[in-house]
Design a protein around this nucleic acid. Sequence first.
DNA 1: CGCGACGTTGATTTGCCTCAACGATTGTGG
DNA 2: CCACAATCGTTGAGGCAAATCAACGTCGCG
Lengths: 195, 195
Amino acid sequence: MMEAAPLISHFETYLPFTEEEIALINNRIHRKRIKRREYLMRAGDICRHYTFVIEGVLRMFGIDEQGREHNILFAAEGDWIADISSFHSTRPGFSNIQALEPSEIIQIEQDDLYYLFINIPKLDRVFKVVTEDKYVELQDRIFQDISSTGLERYLYFLEKYPKLGSRLPNTQIASYLGITPEFLSMIRKELVSGK
Amino acid sequence: MMEAAPLISHFETYLPFTEEEIALINNRIHRKRIKRREYLMRAGDICRHYTFVIEGVLRMFGIDEQGREHNILFAAEGDWIADISSFHSTRPGFSNIQALEPSEIIQIEQDDLYYLFINIPKLDRVFKVVTEDKYVELQDRIFQDISSTGLERYLYFLEKYPKLGSRLPNTQIASYLGITPEFLSMIRKELVSGK
DNA sequence: CGCGACGTTGATTTGCCTCAACGATTGTGG
DNA sequence: CCACAATCGTTGAGGCAAATCAACGTCGCG
């Protein structure tokens, strides 16, 4: 069993865990490395894992009727990523999950996660809080999407995720913002000259 | 104490509760009626309650720099509404929460909700699942917002919330979709004629 | 009754997309 | 280790989706 320390530290930012609880968790997780561009899930698959990112960046994206990809979220160090709906229903999902950098992750399968929820009720609390935090982030983003221009959304993104702003290709950022790479390029040009 | 049955039924769609647990819950909630246009919270307030809707519709909206309102979500029968970030941090929030119809609600204050989480750990599970479901809805909406036209988002809204489509004024729906009432009017005109 | 909320229409403007083309960079197989 | 392909960022011309602004009729409510 590889080191699960990053996941335990993550949990312990919310609540303390005993040695026995940590041992239980250790027995139910899988740590692995994945390559750039590798897929953890494709649209139509059933999402079999909750994935925690130790190192690297992943994206979740959907594909519209015209075949275009649209980034729904990025997950970097300390983030969780999963097609929650597919994971809990054990039915095919609409999301794709792919690594944008060579990454190191910890995965938990459905059975194992449910086993942990039953045996460590505290984990319900932890996942409740984690999900609430992510929910608030999505609400903020929706407010941006319905109230702001592409420029404003780009500035908000840079402010909120400064590291991702420099780590990710602009095509990926444009896809996340809901604009074309060409238009993002225009925005960036005006930011440099006009400021 | 007024009837809390709708809330208990809501909880029991997720897990069973004992008589003692139900009594605990009953002692910690407040049921009330509110008028159309009444505010439960304004931007700058601290969100003091988690609110469950028994009857009616509420909206949460933000106000941009130009003073325009943008609907972040609607909450109808069986939904929860709260400025989660403000509620948990006990700090001023950016949201406004207002009734769009005369409504009947159940409210839980922060102390009481935390008391219930400690004494009925099951509730962590319930709120975890409720929040996950809402999180998935927001993800779907973000995908729509960054990938679709106003027409497509309107059709998706009608399909997903058919009741709200007829109950709410179009100005409120337009605000939710991120388009102007004038443009929604044009869309609706074309739907009637062009179909 | 009168006012404010609501829905609608039309003229004009603007934010952003589409399509096409082109260097620069990356990475990968021979 | 080089050569070629694929990815990436950028620029520009033209077009469309949606906003803005103004005006007007209807309705419900106090």
